[in-house]
Every structure is written in C-alpha cells, then in structure tokens.
Amino acid sequence: MNISLELNGRPANWDVEPGEALLEALRRHGVLSVKRGCDTASCGTCTVLLDGVPVPSCAVPAPRADGRAVTTVEGLPDEAARLGACLAAEGADQCGFCAPGLVVAVVAMSRELEHPDEAAINHYLAGNLCRCGGYVSQTRAIRRYLQEAR
C-alpha cells in the first residue's frame, strides 16, 4: 500500500507492506541510522520522532505513518554533531549502535523538559538501553549537551 509522509522535512511517498513496522520500512528505504535491536520495543535503538513524539519504530505500523512527519537522526545533523561531541569528550560513546536512537530521544527530552536533573534525565531515557557503558559517562555527556544547548 502507498503512504505519504514527511521524512526529515521532505515529502516521501512509499510503498509499504500493510503488516510491516515503520522500522522495516525506514531501513528498506535506506534510512539506516534506525537500528533493529530487539523486536519488542524494549531497547530504544529504533527510536524516531513521529509528529515530534519519540516512539519505537519497531512497534509503529508503517501505515500509521501515513500523513505524518517522521524524524530520524539524519534529520537532526546539528543536534547529533553536538551531542556526539559531548559523548566523545566524556568517552561515553562505545559501539555506537544505540547512539542514533539516543540522539533522537535526547532531542525529544530537551524539547519536553525544561531543566531536567540527573534523575529526570535517567527517567526520561530509561527506554534507551546501552550495554557497553555503565550510563555514568553517558549521563555526564548528556548533561553537558543540555547545558551547552541552553
């Protein structure tokens, strides 16, 4: 079936399977920053913004994106570069598989929460798992990013 969406600010017209998830449709159309990590909406690596709201794209039916705006890290290059620099400066980035999903979630958080403290950050990002680091350096990097963004 055919769907029309706005992908990272540009109109897109895609042929999708009625039973496929947005994640699969994105990857099939070359949006490869969105990673498949768990298939059960548990890990956060496939996070995208749907009309500005962070969702696990593995659990959103692709046809539901019809008429809506989808944002991935490809559409957030400046935010990615700035957060990436903070992560790198803190030595918090490891394998990077979870990083694009994390960037999307952090951007959503920075738009939604005014001055999140550490507990609020940890709570908001609880759905973004990382298996390489112990979250400590990552949280430090995110706080630095939020400070710099202000």
């Binding site: 920053s33 969105v34 498949r36 890290v73 990615a80 957060l83 620099a85």
Partner: peptide, 21 residues
Amino acid sequence: RSLPKIDALGLVRGTPAFTDD
C-alpha cells in the same frame, strides 16, 4: 590523553557502518 574516539561522530550521526547497513 582522553582523546575522542575516532569513529564517534560518524556513529552518532548514524552513518551506515554496521554489517546489516
């Protein structure tokens, strides 16, 4: 020195780099 990881920015930007990519 705590230099940044050389692949840091590319990975955060989601540059295709993993096997399935």
